[in-house]
């Protein structure tokens, strides 16, 4: 699917590098020494137990929050505040209820976009996410999946170099979630961007990502803050087979890393 019109496409996917990123909230260490280099156009899935600081790390990358120490750079340039090279997608669609889906997506455009160009862009994106016929509906008139797709269109509107997604499909039902994963891959193929997404779902991580980053606390040093426990390169190229046997092995390994045993045993 090639929908991005070349005349408008100027931005490219940007690399992200985190070096020694730590975050302390009121003397509670949440993140400790996170080092990660993400290549332009790569898809990274961040997994980890609840409350381990995955979302916090995403907020650092988008500049919504700043690290207590360490540095984050997008394309080699340090992130010092809300960084518009990066778009954020949240677990909730966060659409403005008084705007139509199209008007909501328009919010994602960079300041100073010419009106006609912006509308063209948004129309194109709404088509890409399958909302061409729903563009004039209000958020409360559409399903959760449609709202989340609208928020994805909004996030893509400004051709972000980096797209960070915080459990974007976590609130959706299982079937819609699978459809959204395929949609995200279509979008990634059509729009050049680097994607870093947080998920709880190991299968989702393995299906979407080039690499899966497991975030967690060292069991030997509880309270020391989460850092990267492992980075798993997912073999094969997308689109992957959801039933791939080689992935089953990785799946067990990652679940183990999350503290879940694939075979329930009594001991």
């Amino acid at each position: 699917m090639s929908i991005a019109s070349p005349a408008l496409s100027t931005a490219a996917a940007l690399g992200v590098s985190l070096s020694g990123v730590s975050r302390v909230f009121d003397s509670k260490v949440v993140l400790r020494d996170v080092d990660l280099t993400v290549a332009p156009g790569e898809i990274i899935a961040l997994i980890g137990a609840s409350g381990c600081g995955k979302s916090t790390l995403l907020r650092q990358i988008s500049g919504l929050d700043l690290p207590s120490s360490g540095a984050i750079a997008i394309n080699g340039e340090r992130v010092t505040g809300i960084d518009l090279r990066c778009s954020v997608g949240f677990q909730e669609p966060r659409l403005l209820p008084w705007r139509t889906l199209e008007q909501n997506a328009l919010l994602g455009l960079p300041r100073g976009t010419a009106k006609s160009e912006g509308q063209e862009r948004v129309r194109e994106l709404l088509r890409l996410v399958g909302l061409a016929d729903a563009s004039s509906l209000r958020p409360r008139q559409v399903s959760g999946g449609m709202a989340q797709r609208a928020s994805l269109a909004r996030a893509l509107a400004r051709r972000p170099g980096v797209l960070v997604l915080d459990e974007p499909f976590g609130a959706l039902d299982a079937l819609t979630r699978l459809q959204m994963q395929d949609l995200l891959l279509d979008v990634h193929a059509a729009e050049p961007t680097t994607i870093i997404l947080v998920t709880h779902d190991v299968d989702e991580a393995l299906y979407l990502a080039d690499r899966v980053v497991l975030l967690g606390t060292d069991p030997a040093a509880p309270g020391s803050g989460a850092s990267i426990r492992s980075i798993t390169a997912v073999p094969g190229s997308r689109p992957r087979d959801r039933g791939d046997a080689t992935l089953a092995h990785l799946r067990a390994e990652l679940l183990e890393g999350l503290g879940v045993h694939t075979h329930h045993s009594n001991h």
Partner: peptide, 25 residues
């Protein structure tokens, strides 16, 4: 607060945040 954060994340200025998010809300 979610909507306000959204506005900030999308680069709205304080004035735009007021007129496009907070006042309509």
């Amino acid at each position: 607060a979610h909507l306000v954060e959204l506005g900030r994340a999308y680069g709205l200025s304080r004035w735009e945040l007021l007129t496009q998010v907070q006042l309509p809300a």
